Amino acid sequence: MGDIILRRFEAADAEWLVEQHGSLYARDEGFDDSFGALVDEILQGFIASHNPACERGWIAAQDGQRLGSIFCVRLDEHTAKLRLFLLVPEARGRGLGKRLLFECMGFAKARGYREMRLWTHESHRAACALYAANGWELLGSKVVHSFGVDLVEQSWKIAL
């Protein structure tokens, strides 16, 4: 097996990302089709109008197989937002999540952002543990009904 590489997201990756998010979240958390539609909307917006000087998406791949993704997008002049952080099940537990997180945070810091934020769900325990272990602060939680299920939505931030 070859080494895992992190490469820039390309428009051709969008269909795979929508399918992975939709199927994994449906299987693991019971999400309905509205989640895949949201991922598609986010990706189409990124493809159409992202600024490569201050926003980027990465795809983790090994031997031509996609394993995951992470995105850094601009919220405002000083704040970046982490989006679409995903690892396929067979890529988990190998340190790849931490590698993607550090790549994204390093990019944001190098581009002059002072802070990063993200939105997730409490049920993503491994991701939340990764954020907490690497200096992210939980800003708040609230109970919501989204994607056809009851969830606890969380907001996190980190100073860069």
Rank of each mutant, 00 (worst) to 15 (best):
L17E: 04
S123Q: 10
A159Y: 14
A132H: 08
R8N: 12
G2H: 14
A80C: 09
F9S: 01
H78M: 13
I42F: 10
L82F: 13
E137S: 09
K142D: 05
D76N: 15
S155I: 02
A110C: 06
G64A: 06
Q20V: 08
V88R: 13
T79K: 06
Q20R: 13
Q62G: 14
L43Q: 06
S49C: 09
G2W: 10
K157L: 05
I47T: 02
G64N: 01
P89L: 07
S141F: 04
A159W: 15
E137I: 03
F102I: 05
R74D: 08
Q20C: 01
R8L: 11
R111S: 09
A126M: 10
F35Y: 15
C128N: 15
D13Y: 00
G135S: 07
I47Q: 02
A11P: 12
E122A: 14
G93T: 08
K81P: 01
A80T: 05
R125P: 02
A80H: 04
N134K: 05
K81S: 11
C72F: 05
N134Q: 05
H21F: 13
A159E: 12
I42L: 14
L82I: 14
R8D: 11
W58E: 01
F71M: 13
L87D: 10
A127Y: 08
E10A: 10
C72A: 15
K157M: 08
P89A: 14
G93R: 01
G2E: 15
E15Q: 10
H21N: 15
W16G: 00
L118H: 07
A12S: 13
S23Q: 11
H21Y: 09
S155R: 14
E55Q: 12
A12P: 00
D13A: 00
G57W: 14
A110M: 05
A53S: 14
L17R: 03
H124W: 08
R117N: 08
G140A: 06
R117Q: 13
A133H: 06
A12T: 09
S146V: 05
G140F: 01
F102D: 14
H145M: 08
S141W: 02
Q44K: 15
A132N: 06
C54H: 14
A53H: 08
H50A: 03
I158E: 07
R7S: 03
L67T: 08
L101H: 07
